[in-house]
């Protein structure tokens, strides 16, 4: 009888390992074939929307889907960032910006067939989470006092470089003479939604964020807020612009945002509705 082969000398077993390899290769190949690459043409149009619309717009989209049976896909972000992506060729058909300067810039570059249309106006609120000691008042005396006493550690706004609500927050802080002192204490959100996120965390004492976010029940229960007078900053004109690739569904959605039903939803989320010209 032959002795049992020494497993050390024969090394790893060959057959099962090769089978293993072939099986994994087969799994990868078939799964890849099954998944396929996502098709672009068959899907609903892409809409780029300012983060201030994070809560109002899904309701409008939902209503649009129910009434027309058609759908749109929304990407939220800071208006400046979305504009950059559109310039770089991102396949959006409609842009809902929180500021009209961006839609104007896109139209000037020939990326849109027409002009932008203002559909609502946004507002800023001062917000502080329940655990924060900050006094929340529309005049912002609480922020000034806390800053003077060295008690304000972190204050959140959206990035003023590319987020309209951040730019307006900077204007408000400059108007109140607080900018130079508060600059080093700022938490900058990538967009106003993230700024709101930061403002609601225990790490921040407060922030200047979009009324349309602070007004949602889920957010409102996290703290206190006070509406900032709109005279303290340039208007936050929410502007929509149909882009060159826009087809029928995007056009239908564009007019739907201007409809009475959609405007009622926007008003419910704290947007000021422009009077018809």
């Amino acid at each position: 009888m032959r002795p049992e082969p020494d497993s050390r000398r024969t090394g790893p077993r060959y057959t099962p390992s090769r089978r293993h390899l072939l099986i994994s290769a087969a799994v990868v190949a078939s799964a890849a074939a099954l998944c396929g690459t996502p098709a672009r043409a068959a899907e609903s149009p892409l809409v780029a929307a300012a983060s201030s619309l994070q809560f109002a717009l899904p309701e409008i989209v939902h209503l649009f889907e129910r009434e027309t049976g058609r759908s749109v896909r929304v990407t939220f972000g800071s208006s400046g960032n979305l504009m950059r992506q559109i310039i770089q060729g991102a396949p959006f058909e409609l842009f809902l910006s929180a500021d009209e300067s961006y839609t104007r810039a896109l139209a000037a570059r020939g990326l849109a067939p027409g002009e932008g249309k203002i559909f609502a106006q946004g507002r800023l609120v001062l917000f502080a989470a329940s655990g924060s000691a900050l006094k929340v008042d529309a005049d912002m005396t609480g922020v000034g006092a806390a800053l003077g006493a060295g008690k304000l550690r972190r204050f959140s706004i959206a990035n003023p470089e590319h987020a309209p609500y951040g730019m307006r927050a900077r204007e408000v802080l400059r108007h109140k003479g607080l900018w130079e002192k508060i600059k080093s204490r700022l938490l900058l959100g990538e967009n106003v939604s993230q700024a709101a996120q930061f403002a609601a965390t225990p790490g921040a004492d407060g922030g200047l964020i979009a009324y349309s976010i602070a007004i949602t029940p889920n957010f409102a229960k996290r703290g206190r807020s006070a509406l900032i007078p709109s005279a303290w900053h340039a208007p936050l004109n929410q502007t929509m612009l149909l882009l060159n690739p826009a087809e029928e569904t995007a056009r239908a959605f564009h007019s739907f945002v201007g409809s009475a039903e959609a405007q009622a939803i926007l008003a419910r989320y704290g947007f000021t509705i422009p009077s018809p010209q």
Partner: peptide, 8 residues
């Protein structure tokens, strides 16, 4: 760029 159904 966070596009639903394509790159998200």
């Amino acid at each position: 760029g966070n596009i639903a159904g394509e790159t998200r």
